[in-house]
Amino acid sequence: MKGELKGEGLTVRDLRVTFDGFTAVDGVDLDIRPGDLRFLIGPNGAGKTTLVDAVTGLVKASGSARFGGQELLGRPVQAIARTGIGRTFQTATVFENLTVLQNLDIAAGAGRRWWTMLRRRKEVPEPVERALETIGLSALRDRPAGVLAHGQKQWLEIGMLLVQDVRLLLLDEPVAGMSHDERQATGELLQRISEERTVVVIEHDMDFMRSFARSVSVLHAGRMLSEGTVAEVQADAKVQEVYLGRAAEPVPSEPVATAQEA
């Protein structure tokens, strides 16, 4: 429909999420074009994760979130997932007792007919094979996902979204706790993915954002503070005030977590 762009755009209007009187997301508008690699940044408590939770059906929200011509709000999680939206979580959640291959195979299978479900997997489905290569875990395919290193789990999660064949990936801090090289590899992976799909990344790491973002949205206290390219956002005085100004000093990008998880 839209030429080369294979992803799907997300349109959010006046999104509001309230927990017991506390407004976590306060009337956010957000337009993500198909094929974008959008970074969603903002201080802790800005409402980034809550925004993603609302769009994916995990928390109740008012307003509107449209994807591929469909309204998402009010639908159950699995129905939203089937429209082609996939997400990851801050803490990598893979099925630890299943192998890497089984994890990917399950992710690929939501559309399977019930009689294929009752049979054993005879061969590795082609998309799973491709995803294994893309995320660089081919050699570890028969390992239980629980023994993977932290970064590998994050990649496995991204791989699961790829075989799920989502058109929009919502990634919550995908490089948290990763080494510099792993960050670089992940950033390049995301750029490659965004050629075919729309990618939204919640991130704290400013260096990572500068290197890979195609566009940026800054959230602050539940509101959209600024939107634009990296340069535009960095030049925005409001943003400098609440966020980048403080982060201009060496960014404490959670290296502690790296030491623990490894």
């Binding site: 699995q78 099925f95 089984q102």
Partner: peptide
């Protein structure tokens, strides 16, 4: 079967399975 794998996945992380559709 694949159902068996999925069942274990549901046991271990029901929410994640939901996000897979």
């Amino acid at each position: 079967s694949r159902f068996g794998e999925l069942l274990v996945a549901v046991r271990d992380s029901e929410e994640r399975v939901r996000f897979l559709g």
